[in-house]
Structure formats: structure tokens, C-alpha cells
Amino acid sequence: MAKVNIEKKILTKNEMKAAEVRERLKDVAVLNFVSSPGSGKTTLLENVLAGLKEKYKIAVVEGDQQTTHDADRIKAAGVEAFQVNTGNACHLEAVDVERALDTLGYDLDLLVIENVGNLVCPAEYDLGEDAKVMLISVTEGDDKPIKYPVMTRACEAMIVNKTDLLPYVDFDVEGCIRYAKGVNPDLEIMTVSCRAKEGLDTVTAYIEKKILEKKGK
């Protein structure tokens, strides 16, 4: 019996496809929004993209098991959107993004991917994004970042949403941030309330920074 040393990273087909997508979107900021179902991803995007669309060419890829509800909402906000229905799958894959781009086109400043609501599987799939952004709403419990550490580490930023509900729930914002930083010290943290329109400027500034970085400005 002979031993053959290899020492090579196992790259899946999805990672190879993601690299192709990333190469084709060299000048486009690509953000992959992840969260539990119902954290307010679509509402946040409706609020933030409404302003950014005046300055930048934006498209959104919406991932859900079924329905076009989210893409319809984004389109109603005046932004191009493509709905991917994953059927039984619990996450988007890079090939879904490529398919969406066949329709949306590559002439963009910003591509936002709203992943299927799930804090587990989407962590494991590179979609060719520049950064994953995690949303947590205050109705979910402040220990989500440490309960789903693989996702917390995969993200560049975390947005705590629905802060208008803080008086009614036992959500410790400082505790949540402490958990998050213990898992990923580099995580950029933002707190917003889409309903009270608080903190949205911070998210807009973060996204704009990502757009300008990609343009090399």
C-alpha cells in the first residue's frame, strides 16, 4: 500500500461557480443578506434601497421556497428584482445568482441577495458576494449570534432590527453584541428600526461604502 500526500482544499462545485460570479461582478458590490424568517430583511431593503436607487443601479435577487411576494415588494419600491423559488431547498446557491443575473444583467452598481430565511445552511454557500450581512430582530432572542456561530463568523456585519419593540421584549442589545463579538470580533454592528425609521442612515452608509470600495473610490 502506498500513501499519496495531497494537502489540498476541497472546493465544491458551488465555490467554483461563486468564483465565476465574483469575477463577472468585479466592479459591482454584492451583499448577501441572511437571517431567520421574519427578521425584516425585505422591509429593510424596501426602506434603504428606496434612497440608494436614485444614485446607483441596483438589483435584488430574492430567495424563498415559494411565492413572488418579496420580489413584488422590491419592484413596488422601484428596484429591479428577480425571484428565485428554491422549492425544497433551504438556501440559495451560486448558480441561482448566475441565473438571476441572466435576466437582471451585469450592468449594476449593487446586487443585493436576500437569502432564504435560515441561519444554518446559507452560511455554507458562497454566492460570489463581497459580504454576508446578518439581521437579527429583537423578538428572536439576544443569543442568536452564539447559537448560530458559523453564520456569525461568515458575516461581515450584523443589523439588529425592530428596536422599536425593545420596551416589550426581553432582548439585551449589549448582551447580543457581546455574544456576536465573542464569535466574530470584526463584526460591524448596526441597530435599526424600520418602523420608527431609526438607524437606516447607518445601513445606507454601510452599503454605499461597499459600492464605492468596489468602484475603487
Binding site: 500500500m1 502506498a2 500513501k3 499519496v4 500526500n5 495531497i6 494537502e7 489540498k8 482544499k9 476541497i10 452564539i146 456561530p149 458559523v150 463568523r153 455574544y179 463579538k181 465573542g182 464569535v183 470580533p185
Partner: peptide, 28 residues
Amino acid sequence: MFFACSSCGSFSVKLLTGEELTISNIEV
């Protein structure tokens, strides 16, 4: 999966290992 320094409590921990996904060798 919570990375606080056991000595000084800092969260500025640089991970050295734990993110590997590699094939090492085969025997044939």
C-alpha cells in the same frame, strides 16, 4: 464557539486552526 481570551478576556482573538476543509492524503 465563543472566543474570549482565557487570560485577559479580550475578544481580539485570531483563530489559528478550526476552519480547515482539506484532503490530506490517500492510501492506494
